[in-house]
């Protein structure tokens, strides 16, 4: 009873995981190698070799997936041709694209957001554009990007850029516009110049809001990169998932799904940590 709520929650999480894995195991039948599985002949005819020869269950159990994860993680960085690369390499491709697109978006959104937040005129002038652009699914830009950029990898970076842009732009502008009047007056009475004011008063005051925008953006970017790579193909974790779907390798797909979740969580946690660093209690 004396144990902290954190420890108890952790135990409960493990119990939930165990129940889920057990239920999954029971639901898919024997699992683990699945030797005795009777394949419906009609189905075998439909799916062809994959189901008929390998004796593989169409839906893998937790043990199969565990094995697949082990296989992938023990050798994540191998390259055996364009369609056979380690899952680590594929994730790295996706991450690099996200980081480049996100980085460019930061470089554009933060200064532009500053400008919008500081000038009510520019805010009003740009507002209709932002309102129209913001709800557009980033993937809708893909054909236009492919047509103009003519490079699939750059196009997916562009899509990441465009989807990361809006939350950061809006949050930066909001953060900058809602800096307390008192703090600005302090800077004014101290005759602080505009550049010094921007860096010593407005930026620290708006930093938590700006970083929250970045956190939202990086989350969206990670969601979008998978879909974008499914479309453009070539490399990346999205392409990996699509490729394994074509191979009907569900264990690999589930492995990839889990890793996508983990990487997304890590990205989110990094930005959450950064947000906490710049947050100030009032």
């Amino acid at each position: 009873m004396t144990r902290s709520i954190g420890a108890r929650a952790f135990v409960l999480s493990l119990v939930i995981l165990a129940i889920f894995l057990a239920a999954w195991h029971v639901a898919v039948g024997s699992g683990g190698g699945g030797g005795g599985q009777v394949v419906d002949p009609e189905y075998a005819k439909l799916v062809g070799a994959a189901a008929a020869t390998g004796g593989q269950t169409p839906m893998p159990g937790p043990i199969d997936v565990g094995k697949a994860i082990w296989k992938h993680l023990s050798d994540p960085f191998y390259v055996r041709g364009t369609n056979d690369m380690g899952i680590g390499i594929q994730l790295a491709y996706s991450l690099v694209r996200v980081l480049i697109g996100f980085g460019i978006a930061v470089a554009v959104a933060v200064p532009l957001g500053f400008l919008i937040g500081m000038s009510p005129l520019i805010y009003r002038a740009l507002d209709p554009f932002i309102q129209v652009m913001k709800p557009i699914s980033p993937l809708a830009w893909m054909p236009l990007a492919l047509y103009t950029i003519k490079d699939s990898s750059l196009s997916s970076i562009f899509v990441i850029f465009i989807c990361s842009l809006w939350p950061m732009l809006i949050n930066t502008a909001f953060g900058v516009a809602s800096v307390r009047k008192d703090w600005l007056n302090v800077a004014r009475t101290l005759e602080v110049g505009p550049v010094r004011k921007a860096f010593t008063v407005i930026l620290p005051a708006a930093a938590p809001t700006i970083l929250t925008g970045m956190r939202i953006s990086v989350g969206i970017a990670w969601l979008v990169i998978v879909a974008a790579e499914m479309l453009v193909g070539g490399t990346g974790i999205g392409y990996f998932v699509w490729n394994q779907w074509n191979n009907l390798s569900l264990t690999d797909i589930i492995t990839a799904i889990l890793l996508i979740g983990l990487v997304g969580m890590v990205l989110d946690q990094i930005l959450a940590r950064l947000t906490r660093l710049v947050t100030y209690p009032e």
């Binding site: 008192d182 703090w183 007056n185 302090v186 009475t189 008063v201 620290p204 005051a205 710049v278 100030y280 209690p281 009032e282």
Partner: peptide, 14 residues
């Protein structure tokens, strides 16, 4: 030359 003491102290919290 003119210092202001604000009602709400106006300190920068960070």
């Amino acid at each position: 030359d003119r210092a202001v003491i604000f009602q709400s102290h106006g300190l920068l919290p960070w």
